[in-house]
Design a protein around this nucleic acid. Structure first.
Lengths: 233, 233
DNA sequence: TGCATAAGTGTAAAAAATACAATATTATTG
DNA sequence: CAATAATATTGTATTTTTTACACTTATGCA
């Protein structure tokens, strides 16, 4: 047994994480992505995903959490590993492989000043500029993953405030899935899942009648999951 | 613009790929996994997934293909990136992050001599020994991914010979999903997908009557996919 | 020729998904 | 205070999909 033994013949590479950060603009009722303006060459001034390098004492999840916290000031952001991107010349500066993540945040919660510091901006999917390196490929894959995930896991709520109306939830799904849904069938479906709590409170901003507010009941969801329930929309 | 510019302050790490190689034993009608006996310290003699390090001129997919070819002699193996494992101390020798892959092969196609060279063996899921490092975690995640994938993509055929009976296909699904299926409902379902070609040929090994052989019609599947069809079992 | 063995097939019931439109609530206004 | 305007809420009929369930067929062999 040797001290400081290693695998000497092998080549090491830089490891990055890049985050596709999604948010839902309740006012405009559109899905948005948070992008930063690159402050170093090459491609200085172009738009990119927020990223960073893996630290010596971090897992890639740690690194992604750190990167997300740095930009938004938030902790415990929902995130999920997406895919490794490793084309040899993907980063012209140096061989770097990148682990892409998708992350979902409530667009109103984050630290506005921080994102200004990073010259970051929210873009609708329509207005999204072309991104550097292979970031467009990451983004496209991330959007597909999001579309799939919201259909099979109750993660859409991460994009909404704690209390939301049935209509907001429906708009969120319509926007992410890029489809129209029937409101009668939608609420029937959602209610049949029995994972939302209907509050007595109403949101009166959108109509005279006001619409009931709901809350995602995570405990109920977990309990049902233990009993074999599978979320499906 | 500088020559040989890089990101100097960041730390580099070794990058490995590890492959969870699944096969279906038609005779025993069980799902198996191909493991190798480790020939270096630490954990020499213990069982592990087949792996290798990322080469300087390879993508991680390239590396996984190479690793799979090295062990099996096969090319164009179905494989899919699973997840990055990056616990700081996961490899006690040196900081290494590993990209895990699942791979599906026909258990009768591969090069028997090669796997002997690597002291590799097929194990049923029941007999699978404990694996080194975090390879058990990789394996468990890989099995979940396989279960999900065979339900939503026509990849089960990768585990069977080109021509197979409806019963073999059903056994394969039963084994992977760890459930029993009704043969009437199963063949009704499969046939309704219209992606199999029923041959005139029969396999007479399993019964006097013989059972019809089928072939996966990839072209038909691709055409249907273009038209919005989604495989679902 | 009849027996043993696995292959192959159909139908009824239940559940889930879809299509579709009228009524309820309340603030505002005349 | 009655009418109105605007959005919220709710139910039913139809179609499709899934599930449950058992008998007939083909053939080699005794």
């Amino acid at each position: 047994m040797f001290m400081n033994s290693n695998y000497p013949a092998e080549s090491r590479a830089l490891i990055a994480v890049d985050c596709i950060i999604f948010g839902f603009d309740e006012h405009e009722e559109v899905l948005k992505v948070l992008l930063i303006k690159r402050d170093m060459t090459p491609h200085k001034g172009d738009w990119s995903l927020m990223g960073g390098f893996l630290g010596i004492d971090e897992t890639v999840d740690d690194a992604a959490s750190r990167v997300l916290h740095t930009l938004t000031g938030l902790d415990n952001i929902y995130m999920e590993q997406l895919h490794v991107f490793s084309e040899v010349a993907r980063d012209p500066v140096e061989r770097t492989i990148s682990v892409a993540y998708i992350a979902l945040i409530n667009i109103n919660d984050h630290d506005q000043k921080l994102i200004q510091q990073y010259s970051a901006r929210w873009f609708t999917l329509e207005d999204k500029p072309d991104l550097i390196f292979d970031h467009d490929e990451m983004f496209n894959l991330g959007l597909s993953r999001l579309q799939h995930r919201v259909s099979t896991k109750p993660i859409g709520f991460e994009l909404l405030p704690e209390k939301f109306t049935m209509r907001q939830l429906q708009k969120l799904y319509e926007e992410i899935l890029a489809t129209d849904l029937d409101k009668r069938n939608f609420s029937k479906k959602i209610n049949s899942l029995e994972i939302l709590e209907k509050l007595d409170e109403k949101d009166k901003r959108s109509s005279r009648k006001g619409s009931y507010l709901f809350k995602f009941d995570e405990e109920k969801y977990k309990e049902k999951s233990r009993q074999g329930f599978h979320f499906k929309i």
